[in-house]
Amino acid sequence: MDRMATRFAACKAQGRAALITFVTAGDPTVAATPAILDALVAGGADIIELGMPFTDPMADGPAIELANLRSLGSGTKTAHIFAIAADFRARHPDTPLVLMGYANPMLVRGSDWFADQCKAAGVDGVICVDVPPEEDAELGPALRSAGIHLVRLATPTTDAKRLPAVLEGASGFLYHVSVAGITGKQQAAQANIDMAVQKLKAATDLPIAVGFGVRTPEQAAAIGRIADGVVVGSAIVDLVGSHGDAAAPFVQQFVAALSGALTANSRETAA
């Protein structure tokens, strides 16, 4: 089993959902990022999503958009992001790392170059917001031949007819975007999430992670009862936004609360 499958299996064995946390690489600076990533792990994050900043993050709300601009404004280059990833891999050999971002920065030097860099840096998977299954040829083949997971997104508008196309070539886990919208804004009704996850589980054996709009330990716990993973992004990025270079302890404390809520779930189920 690879790092990602191992981690999902371990969480499952503990009767809890995996906690997947997102921060933007280089926010507020390249130098500050390693401590923030360490704080995520120390707080109990199971999988790290590392955002690749882009000038035009069309699918993101204000919180992550500002993080992108802070990062680029402080001079983050693609080379720094792979250095941050490689560094993280050396410090945390067992924690899966997923790069998340937009097509243009990923593909500007060609998909083979990008896949090679991912592999060399110990990146486990990639989420590309604006390469849908219809354009898989841009990115999918290169990642697959490098053994990097291509994590696909399913949304409230992905109907039963379309879902097989999304699942074809998806690996690592399936990311259920719980609201039709941008990151960090609305929050989906729990009943809708439950229904969507059930449908996705019926269609695939991939672990199902739920994200977009998850901001509190309570919400994470509720989603964790049904999904295999819970993704929290904007709420953490907001902490980085307000505490800057000194964000690490605040991030760790918040992630610990999220992790605690998911773990309490498992005790409930066990009891």
Partner: peptide, 20 residues
Amino acid sequence: ASGHFGQFGGRYVAETLMPL
């Protein structure tokens, strides 16, 4: 048929917009 003019064009949008 897939919206390409040679190597250009295409449909590079978030999954939410694809069905639309």
